[in-house]
Design a protein around this nucleic acid. Structure first.
Lengths: 166, 166
DNA sequence: GTCTATACCCGGATAGAC
DNA sequence: GTCTATCCGGGTATAGAC
């Protein structure tokens, strides 16, 4: 990726985070960069390729956030996961609601993101995936506005953390 | 809802399930009914209203599927939940990825869908929400194609079921 | 009431000139 | 690398025929 492509991804990220997925159009993205939409296609084959790069950014940052968690316990990792997702709701959703193009990710990020959780469940891959599904499910339902207004989400997170802590 | 509106919802459902969310456009929906797109707006104010009715259908069927589970244990309910979602992937996604209009749902379905799970965790609402998040997370990640190709999903479901079974 | 015809605006994307 | 011009296809709204 050249420097211009990086500028485009940075602009796409800002647009997405500030105004949501619907605002992330090739025209609006070009406007933000002071160019015309067709010019973007000299740097990316299509809009999906821009989204893929945004996913790479999100994965890298999420891996770092998990590595910086208070400790390696599941509650601490869950808190870091939730905090990152709620701080970047549109980026998180974009990077989890479509198939992952692993070949376009920075090498090793997927493993880096998974490692702390895997350690927290003593290397049990099944348990790690289940715990990840719990965290993703909580975040996805919260971001989609699916919980009843009076639901105690902190309580649900605690209950899940307890279920996955030996 | 009049009979014509019900036909429209049925056609929308068939279109969605057969060809996916991108194919569910007002023009294609009208084509399937042998009418023109603007006619749809005499029955529904906008496309979102059609989606809302599809969500109502999914909720009703999911509640029935959970009530028909083999028993009231969490593993049995999780299996029923997963089976329904995988049998209707596009309908499930459509009915969980946007805010819920509770006032347009058949009265009581949300509670009906939640009741079996709540019983399985002895009435603990926090635990029930956590278990729901686990199941939704597993399904959402599977439908979005996010698990690595070699991941043992049955194993992850078993691990989650174990975590939420007292 | 229900439908048809038509139009507007906005998406993604391409071709070809500079 | 950027532009202009253009195409196709969405959601939506209105006017008017039957």
């Amino acid at each position: 990726m050249g420097p211009r492509a990086r500028q485009i991804v940075a602009a796409a990220r800002a647009l997405l985070e500030e105004e949501g997925a619907d605002a992330l159009t090739m025209r609006r993205l070009a406007d933000r960069l002071g160019i015309k939409a067709p010019s973007l296609y000299k740097h990316f084959p299509d809009k999906a390729a821009v989204a893929t790069q945004l996913t790479a950014v999100a994965f890298t940052e999420l891996a770092a956030a998990l590595e910086a968690a208070d400790d390696d316990s599941f509650p601490a990792l869950a808190a870091a996961y939730r905090a990152y997702a709620l701080a970047h709701p549109h980026l998180y959703t974009l990077s989890t609601d479509r198939p992952l193009h692993r070949d376009e990710l920075p090498p090793g990020v997927e493993d880096r993101a998974a490692a702390p959780l895997l350690r927290a469940v003593d290397g049990d891959a099944d348990r790690a995936r289940a715990a990840w599904a719990f965290a993703h499910g909580m975040v996805a339902l919260e971001l989609a506005g699916r919980f009843p207004p009076d639901a105690d989400l902190d309580g649900a997170w605690r209950a899940g953390a307890a279920a996955f802590t030996p």
